[in-house]
């Protein structure tokens, strides 16, 4: 209970915490019924429902699920600024490429170019 209460401070908006208040009781009941098996049931079903949901046409868990490209600026491991060549897929941009492969050309110039 203490851990979930402290973790709830990580939720940026107050109204987003309402679901957590309700789900907390569901997880308590699941934990009482079957211990960590019940908690695992709750996590699995909740993740599946979140993965199936969409918000304004964009997957609810974007950019983490579905994984389309690992080389964008929105993924688990964010590459350095000079390596962020593609925009995030879920944005459905007109130009998916944001910069060239070699963005720091000045680093590789030789002589008076």
């Amino acid at each position: 209970m203490a851990i979930t209460a402290i973790c709830s401070f990580a939720i940026p908006d107050f109204s987003l915490g309402f679901t957590l208040r309700i789900l907390r009781f569901l997880y308590i009941v699941l934990g009482y019924i079957a211990g960590f098996l019940g908690i695992a049931i709750g996590i699995f079903v909740q993740l599946a429902i979140l993965a199936n949901s969409k918000s304004f046409g964009v997957s609810y868990l974007a950019p983490y699920l579905p994984v389309t490209n690992l080389n964008t600026d929105a993924s688990y491991f964010v590459p350095p600024m000079w390596n962020r060549e593609k925009r995030a897929d879920f944005l459905n941009t007109k130009k998916p490429k944001s910069q060239e492969k070699i963005s720091m050309r000045w680093k590789f110039w030789k002589g008076n170019r």
């Binding site: 098996l37 049931i41 699995f44 599946a48 429902i49 993965a51 199936n52 868990l61 699920l65 579905p66």
Partner: peptide, 27 residues
């Protein structure tokens, strides 16, 4: 009891389709 506890989430998630199951599996 244990068998049912394993099967109940399966029933719930399969109604959503194979895509969310595959995505959760990826996590």
């Amino acid at each position: 009891f244990l068998l049912l506890l394993f099967l109940i989430p399966v029933v719930l998630t399969i109604k959503l389709g194979i895509k969310p199951v595959a995505q959760v599996n990826l996590v």
